[in-house]
Amino acid sequence: MRTINVSVNGKQYSHEVEPRMLLIHYLREVIGLTGTHMGCETSLCGACTIEVDGKAVKSCTMFAVQADGAKILTVEGLAAPDGTLHPIQEAYWTEHALQCGFCTPGMIMITKQILERNPNPTEHEIREGLDGNLCRCTGYQHIVNAVRTAAKAGA
């Protein structure tokens, strides 16, 4: 067991964990934030995307011990404390960019990174940016719209 200290959505946590515990399981089962989802075990679906030290990563392909000392942001940390949605969340809602919702937290988190690096992406750049995230429901078109809408909102 190892002790790790992490900041998650602005709150500080300290836990003893097994080295093999995946970061996603730490977030979901130890801290109790179940918004981040596990969709595959081969690092190819992106449902588990979160932000670690400002970078979008797949939390199913990281051990919790590797995040020791890191600043983590999950989908639960996006909205303002008063419940005001983040502009990307608003955009996903407005554009009907989700159906079953399972991939959505990961999609929202990768959208944040796409727009941080390229505030005004083309359709092609959006589609390339979403390459690590699978959605089986939407055919991606409304997700592309949502990323554009979020970009316009200056997200």
Binding site: T34, G35, V75, E76, Q89, Y92, W93, L98, G101, P105
Partner: peptide, 16 residues
């Protein structure tokens, strides 16, 4: 959609 707020905030409850 009315169902979206819980889904976009990560507060929906799936079996897991």
């Amino acid at each position: 959609r009315k169902e979206d707020p819980r889904l976009i905030t990560g507060t929906a409850t799936y079996v897991e």
